[in-house]
Structures are given as structure tokens and as C-alpha cells.
Design a protein around this nucleic acid. Structure first.
Length: 396
DNA sequence: CAGTTCGGAGTGTAAAGTCG
DNA sequence: GACTTTACACTCCGAACTGG
């Protein structure tokens, strides 16, 4: 809002990325700057970590577009957890230079956005209004609304103790592409897992690296008669003659081998392999996000995903009960159902409040009921001891 | 249309569990 | 004891809603 302090165009913070920059000799796709290599997965494709996505390298400089839309040169594959690049690395195109950092970057997806920074402790006013606070006291917002006198830190509830957590499922650091090894037609082609390498032991169901429901591959025989159908979630990778297939543990991003970065694995993707037969490569159903069935919902319902429905102050998970999200988006507020109820409730509450407040505003006496509790008709718990500033807000 | 409300995604971190 | 994993507590974004 315009009223909320200029939280606006927060200076683009350098974004930590799980992938490394392209090594010397590799040319990132011109649509993104080296600083943001690799680019976010195309819209509609599977969210991070994308099984893999494809971008033309080298000659496909937007400044010199290929009018014929010819097949792209070898691809650059950001491939979790390591990197795999087209082989051999294409020489820089004539006149091609790395794009400037200001090159128009594709809109950042939510998963690519800079991390939100939170203050350790919001003041009671901001907390009650669910608004951004800052470390200073009085905070900017309270000053702005003239409620600086009531701008104090709230008290943090003590964390529950003695919660049983059960045995942890530790991530396997040295995941091996063992079961994923299938010798291809010419002896040096193999199937590689699309997405994170398979976990060798109990997978971490809450880990986003768990390979989700990826649709079976398109008919490979249509591309090459020698192809066999890969195991679900795998795609063909060809290793050039003499280049050893990676039977060794797949290095993790950032892993150093004798002080050196993990090796870059050359590979081929057969021409015409479905997702890459057109340029630019369209989102392929194989890599599109699965429809309704989300692994986290089905694989382990008990696992709490980051950002799982927040428990109310009373511990209820109203949102879950009501199926709060629609396609991962916020529930549209409608006048029907619970929303309608809430609306009515709120109106009622407002009425009651304005009556009750009357001459003594919350901001003045410094006491009140938290908004989230929606203390309508006093039916909610009143345990929140936050100082509500809605009186102050609505009064300004 | 500016301002308010609030659902819930995203973040921080303490507690519990694991490992060397 | 250090590290990792998990989940609680919390912040605050942003869409829905309200009132002038």
C-alpha cells in the first residue's frame, strides 16, 4: 500500500543460488545475467528444484535472434544437485558477449524471490496489524501512526518442550546414481534421474528434493528405435566416447574435490527428444507440475511443510479444515461460507468495538485484543496480550 | 481509491535427535 | 559437543474487503 512505508523496490539483494555459475567456456543463456545463473525455470514447469530445464547457449543471443527458430545449439542444464552441460562446450558466437547484468530478467517466481527478512521481534502494534515492523523503538510505523508511545516489544511465547519427534531421516550426503544406471543403446548412454538423485535410504518426505510425481516419459522409440522406455522420472543422457559415466557419487553443489569444484559432466541429449524438439522449448507435460496431487499432501500428510498452515493462537488449524488454499494460492475471499461468516463476524465485532471504544481508544489506553483473534462476540480466546492498534489505524 | 483486515506463506530458531 | 532435522512461534505479504 502506499501507506505502508516504502517497502517498495527493495534493492535487489544478491540472491544465493543453489547452482554455481557456469564454468569457463560455458555461455549462459543470454536472457539472464551471470549473477542470476541459471534462470528460473520456465513458467508452468515444475518448481524448484526443477528436474531440469533447458536453455539455449551461445549463439542464441537475443540481439541476434535466429529468425528460422532453428534447433538450438547444445543446452545448458542446470541440474540439481550438480551441473551438467552440453558437450562439447560451444565456442562463443561471433560477436557474442556475455549479457549485461541489467539484461531483462524473467520475472522472479515466488521461489526465486529474495528471502524475506524478518525482524526478531515486531512491536505489539505491528504484530497486531500484521504489518512490517523494524528494530527501532518506536518503530517507523508506530511513529507514522502517532502511536509511538505504545510501541513496545511483545512477549514471545515459550516454545513447547518435550515434543516427541521420532527418528530423523537423515539426508544421504553421498548419494549414488546407483539404481539409476541403465546402459543405453550404444553402451555409453544412460538414464539419469530427472531431478534430485534418488535417495538411497529413507527419503526425507519434507525435502523438496524428493522427486515428485513426474509423468512417464514420452515414447522414446518415436525418437530413436533403440531407445527403451526409461524408468519413470529418468531421461536419456549420452556420454561422449571416452568420457566416463558418473558411477561415482554425484557431487553436491559446493562440494569440493581436493579443493576443486565438482567436475562438470558433459553429456548429449538426443536431437528430437521431446522437450527439446522445438525452440524455444515449450513446457512439457512431463515436467509440468503435477495437477492436484501434491507429493507433500500424499506422500506424508503428517509432514509439516515449510509454511504449513499456521496454528491459531489457540492451536486450531482452521485453515486446514476449511481447505484454505486453492492451487497453492490464497483462498479467494468470498461472501460465501466461512469468509462470509468472518465478514459478518467482523462487522459485528467492529460495531461492538466502536460502541465499546467510544471514548477510550485502544491507542490511548494501550490495551486491546489482537486482530487475529478476531475477538468478535468474545468467542475467541483472549490470550493475546498484544496491543491492538486498529483503533489507531482506523482512526488515522 | 485509500485504508483496513486477516489468511497463510515464509522465516527464524529452539528443541530433539544423530553422530563422531 | 557439534551438527542435523523438525516443528513451533512468529512476521508480514498481499488479496479481500470496507468506508468515505
Amino acid at each position: 500500500m502506499a501507506t505502508e512505508q516504502a517497502k517498495a523496490p527493495a534493492p535487489a539483494q544478491p540472491q544465493e543460488h543453489v547452482y554455481s555459475h557456469p564454468p569457463p567456456g560455458m555461455i549462459p543463456y543470454p536472457h539472464f545475467s551471470p549473477a542470476s545463473f541459471p534462470p528460473p525455470p520456465p513458467p508452468g514447469t515444475y518448481p524448484h528444484p526443477a528436474p531440469f530445464f533447458t536453455y539455449a547457449a551461445g549463439p542464441h543471443d537475443p540481439a541476434h535472434p535466429d529468425p528460422a527458430g532453428a534447433a538450438p545449439p547444445p543446452y545448458v542444464y542446470p541440474y540439481a544437485p550438480g551441473m551438467m552441460y552440453a558437450y562439447p562446450p560451444p565456442p562463443p558466437a561471433q560477436g557474442y558477449t556475455a549479457p549485461p547484468a541489467s539484461a531483462p530478467a524473467p520475472p522472479a517466481s515466488p521461489t526465486q524471490r529474495a528471502k524475506r527478512k524478518q525482524v526478531k521481534m515486531a512491536c505489539t502494534n505491528c504484530a497486531a496489524a500484521c504489518k512490517r515492523c523494524d528494530e527501532s523503538r518506536p518503530c517507523e510505523r508506530c511513529v507514522k501512526y502517532g502511536i509511538a508511545t505504545t510501541c513496545v516489544d511483545g512477549t514471545r511465547k515459550e516454545r513447547k518442550k518435550g515434543i516427541k519427534r521420532g527418528p530423523y531421516k537423515r539426508k544421504n550426503k553421498n548419494t549414488i546414481v546407483e539404481s539409476a544406471s541403465f546402459t543405453g543403446p550404444d553402451g555409453d548412454a544412460e538414464w539419469q534421474p530427472a531431478g534430485a538423485p534418488p535417495q538411497t535410504n529413507g527419503t526425507n518426505p519434507t525435502s523438496p528434493a524428493s522427486t515428485p510425481n513426474i509423468a512417464p516419459a514420452a515414447p522414446m522409440q518415436a525418437i530413436h528405435p533403440a531407445f527403451t522406455v526409461p524408468p519413470e522420472g529418468y531421461y536419456p543422457v549420452f556420454y561422449p566416447n571416452g568420457f566416463p559415466a558418473p558411477h561415482a557419487p554425484v557431487p553436491h553443489e559446493g562440494d569440493a574435490v581436493n579443493g576443486h569444484p565438482p567436475p562438470v559432466m558433459p553429456f548429449f541429449v538426443p536431437a528430437g527428444f521431446p522437450p527439446f524438439s522445438a525452440y524455444p522449448p515449450p513446457p512439457h507435460p512431463m515436467y509440468a507440475a503435477p495437477p492436484a496431487v501434491h507429493p507433500q499432501a500424499t506422500v506424508n500428510p503428517s509432514a509439516t511443510a515449510p509454511g504449513s498452515p499456521k496454528k491459531g493462537s489457540d492451536g486450531s488449524t482452521e485453515a486446514q479444515v476449511n481447505g484454505a488454499t486453492v492451487n497453492g494460492k490464497k483462498r479467494p475471499r468470498s461472501s460465501a461460507g466461512k469468509a462470509g461468516d468472518a465478514k459478518a463476524k467482523r462487522n459485528k465485532a467492529r460495531e461492538a468495538k466502536s460502541k465499546a471504544d467510544g471514548d477510550s481508544t485502544v491507542a490511548e489506553n494501550g490495551t486491546g485484543v489482537g486482530d487475529h483473534g478476531d475477538g468478535a462476540a468474545g468467542e475467541e480466546d483472549q490470550t493475546e496480550e498484544v496491543v491492538s492498534d486498529d483503533a489507531a489505524e482506523s482512526g488515522n
